[in-house]
C-alpha cells in the first residue's frame, strides 16, 4: 500500500476520510456515517456500509410511535426475485410513466449469483440527507416521521445523494430532479406490485419483532 494512501469512508458514494470503524463489519467509516447510524439504530454494531442487519428495535420503541402513518415499509432481499415490478409501479405512481430511472425504489442486482436487494428510503430518524441539504428542500416531518422532499426548494446540488448511506435517494439527469420515496402518502404502490411479498407494509407495532431490512449479505462487499 502506498504511504500517502488515504482510507476513504466505506459508505457508498462517500469520499470523506475515516475516523471510526464499524463494530460489526469492521469497515472504516467517516464521522458523518458512523454518527448517523449510531443515532439511527441506537446500536453501535450496525453501519451504513454493511447495509445489513439494521435493527429497528430501538427505533420502534422510541420513535415510531410518533409516526402518524401507522405502518412501516419492510424490504426482504431473501424473498426478492428481482422482477423489478416495484420500480415500474413506483415510477408509474410518481410520474405516470414506466421507467426504471424514475423510480424511488431500486433493486440492486447481482445477476451472476441471482441476488437481489431492494433499496428504498428508510425515512431515517436523523437523516443525513436532511443534514446535507443546503436549502430547505429536504426536511424531517416531526409529525409523521416522513423525510419530505420539496422540489421547488431544491437547487439540484445532489448533496443528499452522496450523503445517503443507503443509496436510496436518486438524481435523474434527464429531468434534472431528485427522486425520493414519499411512501405514497401511506399506501405504497411498490408493495402492491410485489408478488413474492419481499416488500411489506406492516403495522408499526409488529416491527419491533422484525428487522427493517433483511439482507443475506453485503451486496457491495461480498459481491465482488
Amino acid at each position: 500500500m502506498p504511504k500517502d494512501f488515504i482510507l476513504r469512508c466505506g459508505s457508498t458514494g462517500c469520499r470523506n476520510s475515516v475516523s471510526a470503524r464499524c463494530g460489526y463489519c469492521g469497515i472504516p467509516l467517516c464521522d458523518i456515517h458512523s454518527r448517523t447510524l449510531k443515532s439511527l439504530t441506537g446500536d453501535e454494531h450496525f453501519c451504513g456500509a454493511c447495509h445489513a442487519y439494521i435493527s429497528v428495535s430501538g427505533l420502534a420503541e422510541r420513535d415510531i410511535d410518533r409516526h402518524l402513518i401507522p405502518n412501516i415499509l419492510l424490504s426482504n432481499s431473501k424473498k426478492c426475485t428481482g422482477c423489478r415490478s416495484c420500480e415500474l409501479a413506483c415510477s408509474f405512481e410518481l410520474y405516470g410513466e414506466f421507467s426504471y430511472e424514475l423510480s424511488a425504489i431500486r433493486v440492486l442486482k447481482e445477476e451472476e449469483r441471482a441476488k437481489n436487494f431492494p433499496v428504498v428510503c428508510l425515512q431515517c430518524e436523523n437523516p443525513p440527507c436532511v443534514d446535507a441539504c443546503p436549502t430547505d428542500a429536504l426536511i424531517k416531518n416531526g409529525e409523521n416521521g416522513l423525510v419530505v422532499f420539496k422540489d421547488e426548494e431544491c437547487n439540484r446540488c445532489r448533496a443528499c445523494v452522496s450523503a445517503c448511506p443507503y443509496d436510496a435517494i436518486f438524481f435523474n439527469e434527464q429531468r434534472s430532479r431528485i427522486i425520493k420515496c414519499d411512501l405514497c402518502s401511506g399506501d405504497p404502490a411498490c408493495v402492491k406490485a410485489c408478488a413474492p411479498e419481499a416488500l411489506e407494509w406492516i403495522k408499526k407495532h409488529k416491527v419491533g419483532e422484525r428487522k427493517r431490512v433483511v439482507l443475506e449479505m453485503n451486496p457491495y462487499r461480498e459481491g465482488k
Binding site: 431473501k78 424473498k79 426475485t81 428481482g82 422482477c83 423489478r84 415490478s85 415500474l88 441471482a114 441476488k115 437481489n116 408478488a195 413474492p196
Partner: peptide, 9 residues
C-alpha cells in the same frame, strides 16, 4: 432463492 423476469408475478 427464487428469481423472476421483468414485471413477473
Amino acid at each position: 432463492r427464487e428469481t423472476g423476469c421483468g414485471s413477473c408475478v
